[in-house]
Design a binder for these strands. Structure first.
Lengths: 131, 131
DNA sequence: AGATGTCAACGAAGCCCTTCGTAGATGCAG
DNA sequence: CTGCATCTACGAAGGGCTTCGTTGACATCT
């Protein structure tokens, strides 16, 4: 029904989505400013606008046109998008094994102790459920 | 330091790399047959050939031309490529936190108990090193 | 040698992503 | 009202990915 599968966002689209998740609903100008704040010499205003128009066609974002400056919101939550990206990658590069991806992730980059502890709690839950 | 950074493989390229990792060095025909075995109505022979030629230019694979049927090998190991893809995704979609990616991965898909145990051992190691 | 089959190479077409220039609409200050 | 700023819309250009048809080289079989 209404939950048609959204396409995998491109790198540029993902950058915009991250702004929308962080700031909440935003105009093109706000997104553009957020993007160029971290990355001067980044993308021009009309580039961001065009991307967001295309994202609207794809259903990645929704647009409120009641104001002159249209207000955009991410259609999918950050969690949902992360889940999609992860399962995609698991299938494409990890032979369908989420654990191997998880181990690769933890081995690649230093992780804060609190996060390790949190992960351990999740592990406890999963092993409890196992059968 | 001949380790120039390889570009991120596209979906099609990754499919070919997976064949090379699984089978070892292969000719175009062998890769094509492996791909169409799982996915009839997949890609044509010349398409695979073209892709592998481009991958050679990019440095993703190396080519041995001493035989009439050239033999290709993956330039980077599966592990190295997985690591690259994971750190990429962590930066692009998880705010740089590998643990959050790991948790998302484990929550998304059912994981076998042995793998959970293995992951737990890795966690022990990491927490041991912590300070 | 001639016919047949396999192979790499090349180029073109189609599509998508990104970028940006420009035009037209709208709001605002004077 | 006029001029300026802001915003959306549109279209085109450039590059990358994917697909495939065709060509020429090479091998094999008869």
């Amino acid at each position: 029904m209404s939950e048609t599968k959204l396409p995998r966002p491109t790198d540029g689209e993902l950058a915009i989505l991250r702004v929308l998740w962080a700031r909440g609903d935003s105009t093109v100008r706000e997104v553009h400013e957020a993007l160029t704040r971290n990355e001067p010499e980044g993308t021009g205003y009309t580039t961001v606008l065009k991307l967001m128009q295309i994202m609207t066609e794809k259903g990645l974002v929704e647009r409120d046109e009641t104001q002159r400056a249209h207000v955009y919101r991410a259609q999918a939550t950050e969690q949902r998008t992360q889940r999609q990206l992860v399962t995609d990658l698991v299938d494409r590069a990890f032979g369908g094994s989420p654990a191997r991806l998880a181990m690769q992730a933890l081995s690649s980059k230093k992780t804060r102790p609190e996060e390790l502890a949190e992960l351990r709690r999740l592990l406890d839950t999963l092993e409890g459920d196992e059968e």
